[in-house]
């Protein structure tokens, strides 16, 4: 493989990892909040978070483009306050991947948190533990299987994301082009060999990730 291909792979992995880091704290917090408490507007928030899962990715991308464009409400503010450009930069890639992978993480983690028997959390409370301590020492360790599965799903989804990415980040070689976009472009350019090579790389990465997770789970069981 050429240096450009290695660079493409590295870029795709970095983007997927960055989006994961971006969604992990709010995703786990939201999953915990949904799993353990009942509050007004809970169903609405649940629906909103799940939306990218069922909408055409292109529509999610279009919404992000509107929100984060230089004249959009969030993008405009980011530009004025920090001079940040989002749309058609690597930041837009991370944003698109995050939006698309958040529902998978939240849904998996929510189920995992809900399955942790509340008696352990209650007992920890009688032992003087606060909610943060309980989350990190009881809930999260006991839900680790589901949470790891959710992280993995989110990561795999990020690596394969196409529709939202191309809408909000475009397909700029060396700047916003990820593996799926490169495959699409290779096919467009009639370069089947290149497309198949990149497809093979995608399969290997996905396979490795799933295998690693399976082994991790197996060892702990």
């Amino acid at each position: 493989m050429s240096g450009a291909e290695w660079q493409l792979i590295g870029f795709s992995l970095r983007m997927a990892l960055a989006s994961l880091l971006l969604v992990l704290p709010p995703g786990l917090a939201l999953a915990w909040w949904l799993a353990k408490y009942n509050w007004r507007g809970k169903t609405f928030v649940e629906t909103l978070v799940t939306l990218p899962l069922v909408l055409p990715p292109v529509v999610t991308g279009l919404v992000l483009l509107e929100l984060f464009g230089r004249h959009g409400p969030i993008g405009g503010w980011l530009h004025r306050a920090f001079g940040l450009e989002v749309v058609f930069t690597w930041r837009a890639v991370v944003l698109a991947l995050a939006a698309m992978s958040l529902p998978l993480l939240v849904r998996a983690a929510r189920t995992a948190f809900a399955e942790v028997d509340t008696q352990y959390e209650q007992l920890a409370r009688t032992l003087g533990a606060g909610e943060w301590r309980i989350f990190f020492t009881i809930t999260l360790p006991l839900a680790r299987r589901g949470v790891v599965a959710g992280i993995l799903l989110a990561f795999a989804r990020s690596l394969g994301e196409f529709g939202a990415t191309i809408m909000v980040a475009g397909n700029i070689p060396g700047q916003t082009m990820t593996l799926p976009l490169a495959i699409y472009q290779a096919v467009q350019a009639d370069d089947d060999a290149h497309a198949w090579l990149l497809a093979g790389v995608s399969v290997i990465i996905a396979f490795t990730a799933v295998l690693a997770s399976e082994q991790l789970q197996g060892r702990r069981a």
Binding site: D117, Q119, Y120, L123, T126, G128
Partner: peptide
């Protein structure tokens, strides 16, 4: 967590 009790539930948890 502020009541300072020791609690042992039925199934020990």
């Amino acid at each position: 967590r502020r009541r300072d009790v020791g609690y042992v539930p039925q199934n020990y948890a």
